[in-house]
């Protein structure tokens, strides 16, 4: 469904993405992992056309996305930091985005699941971080689209909401949706991801299933596996 082909991106002196090639298959939940500044968000943004690769290409359904916009009808993106116009109410926002996308959306069930219905008529700038994140989630799941991209979806969520999110993700997978997400919570990843891509300083250090990464690093948990990958890389650097 999505292919990153030798994507390179440099911001000033910083090589953010270095020859990144990844395939994401349809109906698969892929987690992109990596420490802060490893290029996860930038990678996602190249798919969304928000960041334009210096070289390489990004394909969606076999076609390059660069310079195009219509393909985004089939993608919903939930950004890391909730980016909303501040003086809209939640309801206004939920009604605005479908209009801008020219797509119908159903959010009645979703707002109940996340408790958003309780503050539907509050303005965005009156909401707490957690509340915003819930609105963010509703926005992400209210469209019937094949690809959902979530950047740190668990940020600021209370445990009940996280549970609800997990449930939701499983349901979506059953519907055949493709999901790409990033997260710092390794438990969450271990439970939710079919495949893992590990990025370090813009380079893909690992791609495969959870089992494969555990095997390869000889670890018992994903947390351990990731830590060992980071350390290993540091050693290589030290020797070099």
């Amino acid at each position: 469904m999505v292919r990153f082909i030798e994507v390179c991106k440099r911001f000033g002196k910083l090589q953010v993405l270095d020859n990144v090639s990844i395939d994401v298959e349809k109906g698969i939940r892929t987690a992109i992992l990596g420490p802060n500044g490893s290029g996860k968000t930038t990678l996602i943004k190249t798919l969304l056309g928000m960041v334009i690769p210096d070289s390489g290409d990004v394909l969606f359904k076999g076609e390059s996305v660069i310079g195009k916009h219509k393909y985004r009808r089939e993608i919903v993106y939930m950004p890391q930091i909730a980016l909303f116009p501040q003086n809209l109410t939640v309801k206004e926002l939920l009604d605005l985005i479908p209009k801008l996308r020219r797509q119908s959306a159903r959010y009645d069930g979703l707002i109940e699941r996340f408790g958003v219905n309780e503050f539907m008529h509050k303005k965005m700038n009156a909401l707490s971080g957690g509340m915003r994140q819930k609105v963010n989630l509703v926005l992400a799941f209210m469209f019937d689209v094949p690809l959902i991209i979530l950047d740190e979806p668990t940020n600021g969520l209370d445990p009940v909401a996280v549970l609800e999110l997990k449930k939701l993700l499983r349901e979506e997978e059953e519907k055949g949706r493709t999901i790409i997400f990033t997260s710092h919570i390794m438990d969450f990843v271990q439970q939710m991801a079919d495949r893992i891509v590990f990025l370090l300083e813009g380079v893909v250090k690992f791609k495969g299933t959870v089992e494969e990464i555990l095997q390869e690093t000889d670890s018992s948990s994903l947390e351990e596996a990731v830590a060992s990958l980071i350390l290993k890389n540091q050693k290589v650097k030290d020797y070099a």
Binding site: Y71, R72, P79, I97, L100, R102
Partner: peptide
């Protein structure tokens, strides 16, 4: 002031 919103818009199927 609306940079956030602009980013939100950019992720939508709208021409840049």
């Amino acid at each position: 002031n609306s940079r956030d919103f602009i980013e939100l818009l950019l992720a939508q199927p709208i021409r840049r």
